[in-house]
Design a protein around this nucleic acid. Sequence first.
DNA 1: ATCCTAATTGATAATGATTATCAACCGATG
DNA 2: CATCGGTTGATAATCATTATCAATTAGGAT
Lengths: 141, 141
Amino acid sequence: MQHVFLTHLKERRLKLTPQRRLILDVFLGLRRHVSAEELYALIQKKDPSIGQATVFRSMKLLVEAGVAQSSGLGGRSICYEPNRKHHDHLICTRCGAIREFRSESIEREQEKIAIAHGFALSAHRMELFGLCNVCPKGSRS
Amino acid sequence: MQHVFLTHLKERRLKLTPQRRLILDVFLGLRRHVSAEELYALIQKKDPSIGQATVFRSMKLLVEAGVAQSSGLGGRSICYEPNRKHHDHLICTRCGAIREFRSESIEREQEKIAIAHGFALSAHRMELFGLCNVCPKGSRS
DNA sequence: ATCCTAATTGATAATGATTATCAACCGATG
DNA sequence: CATCGGTTGATAATCATTATCAATTAGGAT
Ligand SMILES: [Zn+2]
Ligand SMILES: [Zn+2]
Ligand SMILES: [Zn+2]
Ligand SMILES: [Zn+2]
């Protein structure tokens, strides 16, 4: 996985710094969605000298390298997750729980729709919102 | 349409001000997606005394009243469109063109997926990104 | 190992979109 | 028309992110 990142760096004459190494490791160690801010807090515990600008910059770099993908989840802030097979999200509007899924039939249908409109599809985002099964149905907010 | 808004106001003892009337009229007059900022610019031409905070507040109110819906399009800023029948979006990554569509089969499949995961679906967002047919395929950005 | 240079860093200022604050104002009801 | 609570506009504040910049450093060439 990290091999992809190293290759990306060399191709563009970018440098592998201790900061980038640490950020990459911590990020890949997690197996969930994180915002740059959350990740910064985790990084801080391992090396308090790292600034948050570096975390923002590094996450951008990880996305460019294809190591991370940014899912527009997490309310106002951008969330990242390790780049695996494409999937979409099911999000609980109450507790924030996130479930991942992939529907081949929807993926196919999206392609068909794009073609019908003369678009060359390159990506998509789909999020389903609702109450998960551990959240009580009859209560508000 | 505006009837819905007036009812919403009365139900909550809110007031119908000239500002809200103008913002509602201009918004409904457009038949496209607008950000609060774009709308503010249009409002300014009709009445330069209206502040942009009022536009932001009013758009929020229109959403609560069910007159407008906020689509998370438009990059960083929230976009609004008059609340019609549910639909999803196809967006050109080059020129920003937006096409609307609705796929019954996808809508059904989303329901099935939510149920399979124990979620009670309340809403969803789906955006397809690609190059539209008037944008050249072989060029970058 | 030593140099060199361009990339990187951390602190901080700046940005852009949105929200909060607050005194002055005004719409609705009686 | 008097009263009162909702509303307004200007402005400050917030939040996430990006830009700036002097100081530092990785990595290729000597
Ligand atoms: Zn995911
Ligand atoms: Zn839940
Ligand atoms: Zn839909
Ligand atoms: Zn286009």
